[in-house]
Every structure is written in structure tokens, then in C-alpha cells.
């Protein structure tokens, strides 16, 4: 069974009299261990899709299954638990808490998971080692470069060993070289078995991933998988 499965999912916003179909009848499957990018122009519905996949929101209509759990009917407490244990987020603007140091930032998801202080410490250092920042544990986010901050955010996303990681424009605030470093880190994580969904408007970045899905006006307009050796399914 697929790790994530969307069946005829709609997300409709009502703004005044107007009905905005941010997602319009989307069906999609993501298998465990996949490295996939969602691409499309601004306003096409990428973030909306990611929010639904990441259990930050529920669909207007349709069925979403994540790791065997149907989330369209889940309560907010259940969704919080799923986000905490099964999902990791990486954002364009890093979203680190400025008042906490690097280690404390990485610890946050474990606090909500009820992990003991001792174990938190160990796992934090392990995760920081993975992103090559173990000697920056006591630094404040402000004292780090953009690329380093994003690596802290990745460490934080990994800390509860999630089933899937969502990265929304993770290189959007970085220069090309630093951005490439971050992409390499994702690639490495993918090799180690993580399931990663990369959201971007940039085709060059999307080219990094073996599978690409393009969205336009809330619909999947194009889907491509290098592993299927150029045999385009749609179109």
C-alpha cells in the first residue's frame, strides 16, 4: 500500500461569491522511500496540496490516507499527533524560534512527543551531526548563515523519525551554491531511505528528483518519473 494516497481531493475556498478551487479533483499516490517534487507556477495550488498532505488542513471533499490512516475525518488532536510523529516540515524561511538556541530548536518536536530530557539531548546531538552542525548546538539562529539555519530546520524535521518530509521552497531564500548544498543533503537523506516531497516553482530544482508532478490551476497537469525511463504516463 502507498504511504500517501489522495483520491479525488478537492480544496475549495469561498471568497465572497467566488469559489476558488485551490485543488480540483486531485488523485495521487506516493510510495515509501520516494523522492518527489511538486512543481507549478505561483498560485497553482502547490502549498495547498502540501498542507493537506502534511495534515495541516483537511480537504473540502475527497479521501486522503497517510500511513494507513484516513485523515479527512481525523480530529485536530489526532492531526497534531500525526504531524508530530509521522511528518517533518522544512520551510522557505527556515522558521526557527529566535529565542531558542540551535539544540533547543531541534528539540521542540520531541517535547510534544513526550521524549525524556536525556533522550532528547542524545537524539539532538545525533541529528545535528547528520547535518554537520554539532559544534553549533549552543548558537542562536541569528548567529548562523541561511544555509546553516536551513540545515538546523532539516535536523528538526528529522528528529522524530517521520514517515515523510515536506519541504516548501527550501532553497527559495538561499543563493545557488548554498541551495545546491541543501538539495544534496536531501538527496543524501533520500539515499538513506527518507521519503521526501519537494515543493518548488523552479524546474531546475525539480530536476533533482526522480519523479515530478506538475500542478496548474489546482489540477495535476503533468507527471513524470525517470524510473519509468521516459515513458510519460499523462499527456
Amino acid at each position: 500500500m502507498a504511504l500517501v494516497e489522495l483520491e479525488n481531493v478537492f480544496k475549495i475556498y469561498q471568497v465572497g461569491d467566488e469559489e476558488i478551487r485551490a485543488l480540483d479533483d486531485v488523485s495521487l499516490k506516493i510510495e515509501s522511500g520516494e523522492f518527489i517534487s511538486i512543481i507549478g507556477p505561483s498560485g497553482s495550488g502547490k502549498s495547498t496540496l502540501m498542507h493537506l498532505l502534511g495534515c495541516l488542513d483537511t480537504p473540502t471533499r475527497g479521501k486522503i490516507t497517510l500511513d494507513g490512516i484516513e485523515i479527512q475525518n481525523a480530529s485536530s488532536v489526532e492531526l497534531a499527533a500525526i504531524r508530530n510523529r509521522k511528518i517533518g516540515f522544512v520551510f522557505q524561511s527556515f522558521n526557527l524560534l529566535p529565542k531558542l538556541n540551535v539544540a533547543q530548536n531541534v528539540e521542540v518536536p520531541m517535547i510534544y512527543a513526550g521524549v525524556s530530557a536525556k533522550e532528547r539531548k542524545e537524539r539532538t546531538m545525533e541529528a545535528l551531526k547528520k547535518v554537520d552542525l554539532e559544534n553549533r548546538a549552543k548558537h542562536r539562529p541569528m548567529q548562523l548563515s541561511g544555509g546553516q539555519q536551513q540545515r538546523v530546520a532539516i535536523a528538526r524535521a528529522l528528529i522524530n523519525q517521520p514517515r515523510i518530509i515536506f519541504a516548501d521552497e527550501p532553497t527559495g531564500n538561499l543563493d545557488t551554491i548554498t541551495g545546491d548544498n541543501i538539495l544534496n543533503l536531501f538527496r543524501e537523506l533520500s539515499h538513506q531511505g527518507s521519503t521526501i516531497v519537494l515543493v518548488t516553482h523552479n524546474p531546475e530544482i525539480a530536476a533533482v528528483t526522480p519523479r515530478r508532478i506538475e500542478i496548474r490551476d489546482g489540477k495535476i497537469s503533468f507527471s513524470e518519473d525517470d524510473r519509468l525511463a521516459g515513458t510519460s504516463l499523462n499527456k
Binding site: 485536530s76 488532536v77 497534531a80 504531524r83 522558521n95 521542540v108 528538526r156
Partner: peptide, 16 residues
């Protein structure tokens, strides 16, 4: 507001 949103994204319940 951002911090609160972020904490929720990382698994904080409304109650927390």
C-alpha cells in the same frame, strides 16, 4: 503568531 503556528505544525495540540 508565527511561533505558535510553527509549534502547531510540529505537533503541538491546541491544548498544549
Amino acid at each position: 503568531i508565527r511561533e505558535i503556528g510553527l509549534r502547531k505544525a510540529m505537533g503541538a495540540t491546541d491544548a498544549a
